[in-house]
């Protein structure tokens, strides 16, 4: 075992780690922002909107993330030559960079998987609690904000923790579209030093630590919310 390459590549690993964390946190925030309404409309209706949400979840969960990522990055990229004006537009710096595609693909993925989780979560809140809230004269929005959403989240916090750990471990896919995350740096080390075990073990260790942080954070969060009796 040789570890003398670590000091040389340390700055690259820090850069890669920042990219990984950005991709993970931003896609979770954007994804959850859409996952909540996607879950909700499937329970409350209107029916046609629920159907669309259901279809979205089915498509996202039914196709490999790698294919979604490549469809977005190389698929859209192949259309650019037929639209020369796009290179002059304000969007071009973003369309050119690989990170926005990774962020979009991961956000869609989080929205799809967690939309399904949230559907179950909203459904699992006992009807009696919502009826009680209504009889207190709460408006529909207040019920959602004060009762329904918090109770739904409370039920699925452990599930979400597991889902976000899975999202973390999917982030190396971004390296296939030139996003230089922590896995990408590990690959570079492998290619430049011809060492295999040590860089792989090293990045495996990084992912274990990150997973540990996510799990601990959610355990802390679970303990903070009062349990229903």
């Amino acid at each position: 075992m040789r570890w003398d390459w670590i000091p040389t590549y340390w700055p690259d690993f820090v850069d890669g780690l920042i990219i990984t964390l950005q991709l993970l946190s931003m896609s979770i925030i954007i994804g959850m922002f859409f996952a909540i309404p996607i879950g909700l409309v499937q329970v409350t209706g209107p029916r046609w909107l629920g159907r669309i949400a259901q279809g979205f979840c089915t498509v996202v969960r039914g196709t490999p993330l790698l294919i979604q990522l490549w469809l977005l990055y190389y698929g859209l990229g192949s259309l650019f030559p037929s639209m020369p004006w796009i290179r002059e537009s304000w969007m071009w710096p973003y369309l050119r960079d690989a990170f926005p595609y990774a962020l979009l693909a991961f956000s869609i993925s989080v929205a799809g998987y967690e939309g399904e989780v949230m559907r179950g979560a909203f459904k699992s809140v006992p009807k009696g609690e919502l009826e009680a809230a209504r009889s207190f004269g709460m408006s529909r929005f207040t019920i959602l904000r004060r009762i329904w959403l918090p109770r739904a989240f409370q039920n699925v916090l452990p599930t979400l923790a597991g889902e976000f750990v899975l999202t973390l471990k999917a982030t190396p896919l971004a390296a296939t579209i030139t996003v230089f995350d922590v896995y990408g740096v590990g690959t570079m080390v492998r290619q430049e030093t011809y060492r295999i075990y040590e860089p792989l073990l090293f990045i495996a260790g990084i992912y274990i630590v990150l997973t540990g942080i996510i799990v601990l954070f959610f355990r802390w969060l679970e303990n903070r919310v009062p349990r229903a009796v």
Binding site: Y74, G77, S78, F80, L95, T178
Partner: peptide
């Protein structure tokens, strides 16, 4: 400098203008 895993991938991005 952008690095690609495969030869045809950098050609695709050359065509797309990235």
């Amino acid at each position: 400098i952008k690095t690609y895993q495969a030869f045809d991938e950098h050609n695709q991005d050359l065509v797309s203008g990235r």
